[in-house]
Design a binder for these strands. Sequence first.
RNA 1: GGGUCUGUAGCUCAGUGGUAGAGCAGGUGACUUUUAAUCACUUGGUCGGGGGUUCGACUCCCUCCAGGCCUACCA
Length: 510
Amino acid sequence: MSYSELELNRIAKIERMRERGEEPYPHRVERTHRIDEARAAYEAAVAAGADTHNTGVEATICGRLRSLRSMGRTAFCHVEDEGGRLQLMLRSNDLGKEWLKQFEKDYDLGDFVEAKGSLMLTRTGEVTLLVSALRMISKAIRALPSAKEVVDEETGERTVYSAFDNPEARYRERYADLAVNPDVREVFRSRAKVVSSIRRTLDDANFLEVETPVLQPIYGGAAARPFTTHHNQLKQELYLRISFELYLKRLLVGNIERVYEIGRDFRNEGVSYKHNPEFTQVEFYWAYADYFDVMDLTEQMIGNAAKAVFGGTTVGEYEGHEIDFGKFQRIRLADAIQEKTGIDFTQFTTQEALAAEMKAKDIKCDPAMPRGKLIDKLISDFVEPFLIQPTFLYDYPIEISPLAKKSADDPLIVERFEGFVAGMELCNAFTELNDPIDQENRFKLLQDMYGSEDDEGHPIDEDYIRAMSYGMPPNGGFGMGIDRLTMLLTNKHSIREVLLFPHLRDDKQD
RNA sequence: GGGUCUGUAGCUCAGUGGUAGAGCAGGUGACUUUUAAUCACUUGGUCGGGGGUUCGACUCCCUCCAGGCCUACCA
């Protein structure tokens, strides 16, 4: 580790302090009030009749120095903790001329301090701690990428000059980003609310939370390429899971009727504003329910999450659109595609017929694409981008849904729905296929379809079929990307903004 | 993977063939109610890395690295 001049300067301050017998990294600190509590104590005292300029309310606060203005015999600074910011006033009359001189020399923005004093109002009307004692509790060697800030007295609005907003630097040094940008901290508070709200919704509906293997000998349950790894002692190839589905449904076989998992999935695919190699999913499986029951619960779950974030209302804003997360429109997929393209895919039951119809309608596509992929393309090109308000599309083609149960009316359709908001796929659910013979045939069909292409081929999970053959209750299942839901509820256009440490390449110098 | 834009001081940015700049941060000093405090002086740079063209390259060319946006892949 090499130090810049600025850092060497601060290291010298540490040495200077130690020579004076001050430890810049003490083991224990005292804190009587968080900053919001100190403010509340001030307000309470004033309400009870105390003199605003001398309330007599004592408080010891701890936090980071975020501003520093030295006026000679008086210095002002702001200290920030999780409860906000509070101004400190340091006077040489109270602390001694020499002490204040040393303070000005040895304390920097970003240092953590413990300040003891009494609460008062300054002439300019700011609640302030008039300090009787202050000490360093953790010296910062690097300067935070701190910006100049001004808070408008009337609106309370914070204007930041030269803010730390380079995305790469912010993601690589998320700690600095969090320390300096309060709105970033707020995003992750919202994310935590989303997760706990989902958990509460499912717990309240008597679902059991479980954990299933991340390291799997056979991956499955989704259309994605996996990461591979290796167990040295067992000499075994393993995959990082791409979904929880096949393990959770085994639990239905085991007479667990309502089960869910919240955890990390890993997909070895391209990255984009809505894709990160690892991401957080919630999946649940619900015995004796079908996909319409799942729609109802989904609506409730997402509405609750929105309320948790927005504070009581399900209505939020995303990229300029007002969105009500509490209500999903329900549209049959075939109707949605027909409306946008004039093609009713249910009338074109073979790949050839559908490809010909798309060609007739001047829709460009690879003529070798399987029928399911053609339909998928119609969805993503003509329907998905226009689904701004929450919408469930339902009744999907069987080819792209190997784990969903066939419709009783149409053998080419399965009971599946996907939820979309703001033109983005958010969740995926179906009445789960529980017929082991049908399931085996579907797996084989897929192998025939993709077997030659390494990328798309998936291994058949024989044990999953074995489990199902013991009897799996009819059930509805559901999966949703929590990162994407958080994007929608925090009005962020990039998944990286809702991941604390998004994946980045090594930043080697050469 | 493809297209495109970007990378200059700790942070935010200007500079586009001729001695590397500003604001803030940092340093020294002045100032007993400031709040983007102010004022004076001042330190700080492999101009993302490497190669080339040129008398001379932050600037032009090639290449590599990293990031943003778009796009592609995504039972």
